[in-house]
Design a protein around this nucleic acid. Sequence first.
DNA 1: GACGAATTGGACAAGGCTGTCTAAATTTGT
DNA 2: ACAAATTTAGACAGCCTTGTCCAATTCGTC
Lengths: 208, 208
Amino acid sequence: MSVVDAAASVFCREGYAGANIDLIAAAAGVSRQTVYNHHGDKEKLFVAVVRDLTERCNAGIFATIATFPDQPADLESDLIAFAVRMNRNCICNRDGRFLRKLIQAEGERYPELFAEWREQGPGRTWSALAARFARLAFAGHLSIGDPDVAARQFLALVNAELQITFMLGGTPTEEEVLRSATNGVRTFLSAFGRKKLPAGKPAALVHA
Amino acid sequence: MSVVDAAASVFCREGYAGANIDLIAAAAGVSRQTVYNHHGDKEKLFVAVVRDLTERCNAGIFATIATFPDQPADLESDLIAFAVRMNRNCICNRDGRFLRKLIQAEGERYPELFAEWREQGPGRTWSALAARFARLAFAGHLSIGDPDVAARQFLALVNAELQITFMLGGTPTEEEVLRSATNGVRTFLSAFGRKKLPAGKPAALVHA
DNA sequence: GACGAATTGGACAAGGCTGTCTAAATTTGT
DNA sequence: ACAAATTTAGACAGCCTTGTCCAATTCGTC
């Protein structure tokens, strides 16, 4: 395990103030001196950890958004599968859980660092997801007012049953993820879905 | 400000390890010795803080659930008002934000303390809210499959647009709360609402 | 094998925090 | 007004952590 990875783990478990360099060095399997050689001091190491996590999480999120079902065969099951991917690869995995915890615990102390995350992470993420939903709506698969609102509500719904697990820093089981995604997508489609629409028919014709 | 209140504030801002007794004493306007006289040591003080917050939050949540609109005049606006009350009095207020942050930051270190919160807080809260939604469904105002799922999704939806603010420990403005609640309730009713139902008509008759 | 670079373990000073103690000052109850 | 209880300021020992220094060792590369 690299020093930065070990540091991420210890910072998350102990908090910034509670983490000490000896613990991090031991977790990384190197000497304390090596930690100082590589990263200067504790604060610089912390910044490196957050940057690393932010970068990897964003990459994962955009890679997953790229798998959004633009031409769904079965809208419900395709969206459920997408939601499960999103959870597994971006929200429940190591990087996602760690980054969330660090933001919650230390965000107030490092405003500029987390402002950067906020712009590059959720800001661009939600826009990208909203664009995909807008496209689905344009193709007649959904009936959406504001795509940004729909995207946020989609994420909120498919995670609705995982909140408590997230709060305590746990990892939900594959089954819990699937159930939350299934319930969330069904409600989402009850609200925004079009019933029994012939595949491929443009949205404009539906009103006729 | 009482010692426990001051301690809550400092523990939240600095984390358990980062909080020191001098800071707490100064925030409370008493001497360090008085803190030790009253609460023994740092860990006992922390436990007292969590118990105090848990108790007050639960009281607030149940008081607010008691204002659930069982006989709604206008279902949409009544649910929006309820969601706004829930946010203002339980989730965005001082106790709610503090308790959430402490659970996220220190929950892993005090399993038994937060297990207690989990049972008495979200467990009973969600059941109580689910019962109210079940009642609305029985009265024919909603069409709900699983009331527990619906209750969790209701909360997820009305908070969907406040997630980032919560993450950074901020307090959303009254306008943001209202907008998130409005968007959330509209989506909720699109999914679970019954359209143009004559007031007071039993659900069973609707199918006729 | 040899040489430079990186790593290691250990010692170290400086500083911070916890929790205790004590004597003086203040508040409270009667 | 007096006595008891509480609060206060300050000093203090013990411990932990950070960050530096250095000599010895290991590693990578030629």
